[in-house]
Design a protein around this nucleic acid. Sequence first.
DNA 1: GTGAAAGCGCTAACAT
DNA 2: ATGTTAGCGCTTTCAC
Lengths: 339, 339
Amino acid sequence: MAAAGGNVKMADVAKLAGVSLTTVGRVIHKNGYVSEENRRRVQDAVKKLGYVPNTLAQGLKGGVAMVGHILQFSPNMLFAQISRAVDQACTQRGYSVLSFTKYGLPGEDDRIVTEFIGRRMSGVLITSISKFDPLLVKKLERAGIPVVWIERAPEHADRVLLDDHTGVYNAINLMIQAGHRRIAYIGLEGGGQVEKLRLQGYHDALRENGIDRDPALEQFSKSYQPPEGRGAMGRLWEKGPRPTAVFAAADTLLSGAMQYLYQAGVRLPADLSVMGYDNTLSAMLSPPVNSVAIQAEEMGRRAVDLLLRRREEPEGGPATLWVGTELVDRGTVVPPQGP
Amino acid sequence: MAAAGGNVKMADVAKLAGVSLTTVGRVIHKNGYVSEENRRRVQDAVKKLGYVPNTLAQGLKGGVAMVGHILQFSPNMLFAQISRAVDQACTQRGYSVLSFTKYGLPGEDDRIVTEFIGRRMSGVLITSISKFDPLLVKKLERAGIPVVWIERAPEHADRVLLDDHTGVYNAINLMIQAGHRRIAYIGLEGGGQVEKLRLQGYHDALRENGIDRDPALEQFSKSYQPPEGRGAMGRLWEKGPRPTAVFAAADTLLSGAMQYLYQAGVRLPADLSVMGYDNTLSAMLSPPVNSVAIQAEEMGRRAVDLLLRRREEPEGGPATLWVGTELVDRGTVVPPQGP
DNA sequence: GTGAAAGCGCTAACAT
DNA sequence: ATGTTAGCGCTTTCAC
């Protein structure tokens, strides 16, 4: 019946209220002087017409409060966590989030960056992608759009990283304190920074406790997918002296490992202590397993704050912020069985 | 060094190329006649300045190609699947997606709707929320923004639903064909449409095969979370004649049920056949279990198409589109053991 | 206290 | 084949 709210413009409100555009603006933004009388008339008109200011027109001058978020496509729920944290942090600060997921299609990156520049975004976050085309990043920055990287990032960039070293280090220490010496490590092969940190955490924990590394206990997979974890666990179990504890650098890898163990009839944690990483799947496995949770909320908050700060003071060297982890104990690390 | 791409405007390009705004526009949009000479000059200027048209200004006239997506917050990866499908469908059609997740905070819905109207969105999708404030939906529609519901929806609305009835029906039939008669059902209590359809699928499959319903085999949980499934399984296993097969109306419920079974030392599928629903977790459990996958891609595609069609022809009764499911067999439904 | 008017960057009639 | 100009809806000086 009434007018279509979306096509109502300020002028319609002004006319209905019998005032000028300026007055309407003042009422809407609660600034400047407006008589009580007029304020009421305007407010009534707004309500009656269902008027909502056109964000595009508003933003034409100064740009719109909106941050872009580029994510690597991944079935891993870790990114859902981060995504949510970023969302919340932005919303709280009055920014909307425009997200694009990278599926790896050709021309994708260019499209995303062009889209962001075209919209004059307030800033851009890049989550878990260390290999985003540097020229495109430069293009964003030339356009006055600050960029902050999350979880994975190149050197010399504003970034918020996860303290994976400490996360794994603490996990392995828990196992050592429970009495384990033969602790296996299942991780991704190849040397991403994240992967290096995790492996290093394992090595350092062993070394500091006087435990020699055994290459046979280190199994590397080609991806973080369950079947890879299953294969790794098989190699670990079938030959050589078996470990008494297994740490997997991702819950998905552990889930695969547990599939092998299930089939092999190995009981957890009675026959073997296990622990995962990233706390995404760990509560849903049988049994629920120990894992290392990331502090996603803090990650999102700090990334967004860094981004917005950069808008004001683009100078200063690149900042690297580290976010902590938290050990979640579900009872799958117990003292090793006597032989 | 060069100018900041984001602040470069059409006029800058025009000046550098020594032509008018119109000519620049024609080159950019590849319409109208432009001499080869000028086309080159403009293209060079665009490249040199890193010019990207201001989407806000472009959209000021006709609005911007962007669809809104409202999702219920949920740890269930099903929504990640749908979200991705929607993303892809929109991207393919040249629309960006602005997503908002509902966390249940006060004033949230209003904020989201206002945001969408303010941006003059092309349309809005609402995923897995049947209880979105009807007044706000009406507000969207008054503003000329079509709305399409996904997975859960009120009656008399444009919507794309999942054929949960057939999905469950087929799953139960698989179990029956394997020889099972005592088939348990673990589902959410209370009568959402989705929940009703799933339960109905179970009932119909039993009835059509001449199997009497046994209330003791129907266990209802308060949420889809694993601990609920665990509790339900416990009730199923501890009293009464035990089932030989268990169907759970969500993988998360099944994951919980399997935790109970693990602890109880029940081997799958030797001692008990099991099957989940939604195919989110099923490949990661021990053992990997049968589940029913939703055709997310199709769901996203059809929802977006319906939405865009509604923009052109707002008339016509509300459409309800049903999307199918697919049984994924991982070998956890086998003939029941002889006693 | 209130309003008129000049943009914001781009598009599209309408000339030339 | 190219340019001029009048908006799009809102903000914001600057007058009254």
